[in-house]
């Protein structure tokens, strides 16, 4: 028996090896790449370029603004929907939630093609507002799902207690429901914010390259004509820091009901 448990642990080794090689090592490569010249010598110039050439920092700030606006809009639209659905009886709500998250499984390029056709049809210019529309459209389901999970798991007796104690409708909402759904809110925010800042598909398709956010810039620095992979690596590190920060915040508020991406199945 003892010998066998040792054997079974061995099952994990191919994947551990794989993770070291193709999940951890790529991140190390990015770290190393940020400190390297084209000839492989050590340099800090990529960092100084990032911080001094104006474009990168300005763009980072612009992207954070776009990400912030998108996230807030998703929250404003998504929260009432999730709240309403969490009050419905579960089988009906299940179907409607399904309708909201179904588009998550349709390729992002196709959804954005649809958005582009739609915007052209209503005569909208391709620009910042088109991009924000596309972003909200794309990421709204990622906001609704965790909010719904969190709100429908909320113990209804808290609301009843608040009402019994004389709280008005808005007091119940702001003092009971919203504070209790903070884990869902935080999880929704992280699921929208990071992908928004790091996208390049939506911006390029909906603005013909006029709106450039951080994801576009990384894409450009790695594959474009003026490619500088060192600066691109610095930008990837910045992106990675954003990811880590948002996950630290997420873990602080975590509850087990927060679904992982792809929670549909």
């Amino acid at each position: 028996m003892k010998k066998f448990t040792v054997n079974r642990k061995l099952f994990a080794f191919p994947y551990i090896l794989f993770m070291l090689l193709f999940i951890l090592l790529p991140m190390v490569m990015i770290l190393v790449g940020a400190f390297q010249n084209a000839d492989g010598s050590f340099t800090l110039s990529k960092f100084s370029k990032f911080f001094t050439n104006g474009i990168c920092l300005q763009n980072l700030w612009f992207s954070i603004e776009i990400g912030f606006i998108t996230t807030v809009l998703c929250l404003i639209i998504g929260y009432p929907i999730a709240y309403i659905l969490s009050r419905w009886n579960s089988s009906k709500a299940y179907l409607v939630v399904l309708l909201f998250v179904l588009p998550m499984w349709i390729n992002m390029l196709l959804r954005t093609l649809g958005t582009k056709t739609f915007l052209a049809l209503i005569g909208s210019q391709m620009g910042v507002s088109a991009v924000i529309f596309g972003l909200v459209y794309n990421f709204l389901p990622f906001m609704i799902l965790p909010l719904y999970t969190s709100l429908s798991n909320l113990d209804k007796s808290y609301i009843e207690a608040a009402q019994d104690l004389g709280a008005t409708g808005s007091q119940v909402l702001f003092k009971t429901v919203i504070p209790l759904s903070v884990p869902g809110i935080v999880s929704g925010i992280t699921m929208v914010f990071v992908p928004t800042v790091s996208t390049f598909v939506i911006t390029q398709m909906l603005s013909r390259g006029n709106v450039v956010i951080f994801g576009d810039l990384i894409y450009e620095y790695f594959t474009g004509i003026t490619a500088d992979q060192g600066v691109g690596s610095v930008m990837s590190i910045v992106m990675l820091i954003l990811v880590i920060l948002s996950n630290v915040v997420l873990n602080k508020f975590a509850d087990n009901s927060a679904p992982v991406k792809g929670g549909l199945w």
Binding site: P26, I30, P195, S198, Q229, S233, M239, L240, V243
Partner: peptide, 11 residues
Amino acid sequence: AEIVTAVGLMV
């Protein structure tokens, strides 16, 4: 972020 994973693998 997907783009970071992608770029890391590429490098």
